[in-house]
């Protein structure tokens, strides 16, 4: 796993790609969605069949930190034809190196988790309401790493929209234990991997059974 960071650093890259970011995070027991990398629309279609429709198709590249802004995400693709068509479009986006095929995670709730570094406080972990309105809603809580599970559970309960943790529109209550471990792990990464400058997991979606899963992730590397 260190190789992933080291190679990216050696190439002078500022971030890990989404796919690499999730591979990195999954080493710390952070649940990530099912996904596969494809080089072209045809192999993307093959991946999609393995994962099962509907799927999400994303433009993937080391410099594509914010995909939404460039139209780099195609949601809810239901068949091979749509995958091919969207795949062709995404490949034309500047910086797109490959196609990322993902399961379309169900569930209405979107959370955000992350790691940042403060010059004085060191690694700090964030939790809050996620999705495209993260910064607008500004409903987040922080803790200083290392976190105990108690710290994590406390910060989860600290957001204004804490009711989102309860059963919601036919979906189960959020599994706070799993969520807490995600936050503890982010703190651990902050303490153990100096080369990681920041992490965003946004959104961390909640499946209808209440289990959180990272649907998009970004690992920002330290500037040399």
């Amino acid at each position: 796993m260190m190789n992933l960071l080291k190679e990216a650093m050696a190439k002078g890259r500022a971030t890990l790609s989404e796919y690499e970011s999730k591979r990195f995070l999954s080493c710390f027991d952070i649940p990530v969605c099912r996904e596969g990398l494809a080089e072209n629309p045809d192999s993307a279609a093959a991946e999609a069949r393995k994962i099962g429709y509907p799927v999400v198709l994303k433009a993937c590249g080391a410099d594509l930190a914010h995909k939404t802004e460039v139209g780099g995400i195609a949601l809810n693709l239901k068949n091979i034809r749509d995958v091919r068509k969207e795949g062709l479009r995404l490949m034309k986006i500047r910086g797109c190196e490959a196609l990322l095929v993902q399961e379309m995670v169900k569930g209405a709730r979107e959370l955000v988790c992350g790691l940042t570094r403060d010059p004085q406080l060191g690694p700090c972990v964030m939790f809050g309401l996620g999705g495209v309105f993260t910064e607008v809603l500004d409903d987040v809580a922080f803790r200083i790493a290392p976190l105990t599970l108690g710290d994590a559970l406390e910060m989860i309960g600290e957001i204004r929209a804490r009711k989102i943790l309860d059963p919601f529109r036919g979906e189960a209550a959020i599994d706070q234990e799993i969520l807490g471990h995600v936050l503890v792990s982010l703190g651990r990464i902050g303490l153990e991997y100096e080369n990681v400058a920041a992490i965003d997991i946004n959104p961390l979606k909640v499946r209808p059974d209440g289990k959180p899963v990272a649907v998009d992730a970004l690992v920002v590397l330290r500037k040399e």
């Binding site: 992350g114 403060d118 700090c124 922080f142």
Partner: peptide, 15 residues
């Protein structure tokens, strides 16, 4: 900052 988490980490929030 490029990451949301860093952008939202106002000093007093961390304190």
């Amino acid at each position: 900052a490029v990451a949301h988490t860093a952008a939202m980490a106002a000093e007093d929030r961390l304190i």
